[in-house]
Design a protein around this nucleic acid. Sequence first.
DNA 1: CATTGTTGCAAACGATTGTTTGAAACATAC
DNA 2: GTATGTTTCAAACAATCGTTTGCAACAATG
Lengths: 225, 225
Amino acid sequence: MAQSETVDRILDAAEELFAERGFSETSLRMITSKAKVNLAAVNYHFGSKNALIQAVFARFLTPFSSTLDRAFDDLEARCGDTPPTLNQTLWVLTESAIRMPQRSERGLSIFMRLLGLAYTQSQGHLRKFLEQQYSNPFGRFMRLLKEATPQLSAVDRYWRIQFMLGATAFTMSSSDALRDILHNKLGVETTVQEIAARLVPFLAAGMQASDPLMVVPSLGKTASG
Amino acid sequence: MAQSETVDRILDAAEELFAERGFSETSLRMITSKAKVNLAAVNYHFGSKNALIQAVFARFLTPFSSTLDRAFDDLEARCGDTPPTLNQTLWVLTESAIRMPQRSERGLSIFMRLLGLAYTQSQGHLRKFLEQQYSNPFGRFMRLLKEATPQLSAVDRYWRIQFMLGATAFTMSSSDALRDILHNKLGVETTVQEIAARLVPFLAAGMQASDPLMVVPSLGKTASG
DNA sequence: CATTGTTGCAAACGATTGTTTGAAACATAC
DNA sequence: GTATGTTTCAAACAATCGTTTGCAACAATG
């Protein structure tokens, strides 16, 4: 692929529209008219709409996964024999995402929303594509999480990782809307970087909570304060 | 509306298909063929596809919101002057959801997934409908959360509530798949109730984390352990 | 009996979807 | 110049979408 002007314009338009409206709610005609290219250009350059969706993800994830891999290398080298802490592991992931060179200032939040949509919208082809392409850095992240929380049983850790994933994917996928609401309610401006910086302590604290299961608060004796 | 057999069959089929595939990915023809009713029945009984989507939510949320309201009444009566704790507030919400009479054993997880989809899929009409219909119990829950976390600033509390929402909606919406994965990996069976009992301590700990923003772990000095 | 209002049904409606086609436009090489 | 391979373009393709229509089936009421 010669990386023509047309290809980039399609990718840019598709990325933005997918993030705004979801995948199946975005038609090729919307994309091509926003990109100011002919309708047939998508099928010519990418082959199908599904392949275009995958290409949008690959354009961000491929450079990101090698950046992340190097960041994990650095982290483990710095720590020597002792495994990295939970906070360090989470922050390396977050920082790697934040530091990625963006096409626009909303670049990261756009892509975070796409990642969130990839989880919630049941695009089977996309799930398989992401699993096949990026299983390595994902598996490494999971290994680091395990070493950073040796006090948790495998079952406890499993569920809490899901809770973390959920909080992250959900928040990031709606980050634009949530920022707008906060701006209207309290007049506060927020960056994606700040959201991430708030998310990490929340996740780390939840991950290290002392009670794995809820102690049901009864009438007389209240649980915790 | 006479609550005919047909209406219920349509609602059952729609609820399940929407949860499986999302709203716009589910056609009326799928719904009516699964419900074994005529295609025109949806527009006859509900008026439009959007009205059907709203009806699916109303069928669960209307009884749930009054149940929740009574549960909050009980909680505040038990606590007297002192505001309920965070754990208590979270658990009352969780328990009210769990105790709701379900149409099937997967009823709650189906509906949790629908709630998650309502947030992520940009269905403007649904957002407005939910806000108009159920602003009261939602606002009351927010008030209780505020009184239970007086140490948090409004901005901190806002974001952490979003994190809680995300972890909950995401986990519950995928609870079936997540339970299957856990069963295959570790051979452990899990109930929705147990997931909820694990979720509450995680959320409470995250909500009460000491650092609102991340303290970047530097090379020499690592943040927390 | 006839009348009326409700529900069920097959068929069609116009609109929109992703994809394909065949020719025009273009650049590059001989 | 001709020939070749790539890219663009308008137009059409078949399929599917939500919705509407006209009529049959049915129960209830007079």
